[in-house]
Write a protein that binds this DNA or RNA. Structure first.
Length: 255
DNA sequence: GCGACAG
DNA sequence: ATCTTGTCGC
């Protein structure tokens, strides 16, 4: 896929901070996800190896079947060490190579980290949304910014997270009695839609399939490439059909 | 000055 | 991100 080049990536923390504040106003908080979502992507980075290089992975899943259809990998030096608030400048430089080699164009991207729930309202999900121009969602396992008070224990429960008086995200319980994930807007999506997409990817697990498989791919446990149109393609088409069917019957119960 | 701090 | 042990529930 073609990416927008907005600025240099290997910059100092001070430059990164200035870029974040100047890019944050470009983020769209409006839902622009169409009804015809066929592909959802997840991205992740491995921890650095002994030479200090990381492996970036992007995995494109069919929707609603959630079967992997394309896996792309890239290796390189992180743009920065891990510094809270600057994760995108660490991970995205290497992720760019993987994203550019993508044949499929995802309709939604789910990032492993924050979107708006960030000190300057510009987490990695926002950054990925801008450079890909694809609707993006932040789904983090822990909090960077924001507080919430009460969250019911049932799956699907959510609570607004507030930082400096602004609602920056949601604590979302994806499974009953497990710690929530923290969802925020990345780009071209609203918060409620973002939560629905995360839930739709969770198949009864705590984390979305996108993050799970991207994590496996970054760890080198998934073969890269376009899954062949025969067995894998038929498999994912079958599970898409099955998933559509079960969505239809579930909706039928409420009509 | 101190604490908090995505991956 | 990593590491370890114990506990709970199906």
């Amino acid at each position: 896929m073609k990416l927008q080049s907005l600025h240099p990536w290997y910059v100092s923390v001070e430059e990164a901070k200035a870029l974040q504040t100047s890019l944050a106003p470009m983020v769209s908080h409006t839902n622009e996800i169409t009804g015809n979502v066929g592909h959802i992507a997840g991205v992740d980075i491995s921890p650095p190896n002994d030479e200090g290089t990381v492996r970036a992975a992007v995995v494109v899943l069919s929707y609603p079947g959630l079967q992997p259809e394309e896996v792309r990998l890239a290796e390189g030096k992180p743009g920065l060490p891990y510094i809270p608030g600057f994760l995108s400048f660490r991970e995205v430089p290497v992720l760019i190579d993987a994203l550019e080699s993508l044949e499929l164009t995802p309709d939604v991207i789910i990032a492993d980290g924050q979107g708006l729930a960030h000190p300057r309202r510009f987490g990695i999900a926002c950054h990925l949304g801008l450079i890909t121009d694809v609707p993006a969602i932040g789904c983090a396992k822990s909090i960077l910014r924001g507080r919430y008070d009460r969250l019911d224990s049932g799956a699907g429960s959510r609570a607004e997270m507030v930082d400096r008086g602004e609602v920056v995200g949601l604590a979302l319980r994806t499974r009953t009695d497990v710690s929530p994930v923290y969802v925020s807007i990345g780009h071209k999506v609203d918060l409620d839609s973002a939560a629905e997409w995360v839930l739709a990817c969770c198949k009864g697990r705590r984390l979305p399939e996108t993050t799970r498989l991207a994590h496996q791919a970054a760890a080198g446990r998934l073969p890269s490439g376009r899954l062949s149109a025969d067995e894998a393609g038929r498999k994912s088409k079958d599970s898409d059909d099955q998933a559509r069917e079960s969505i239809a019957t579930q909706q039928g119960k409420f009509l």
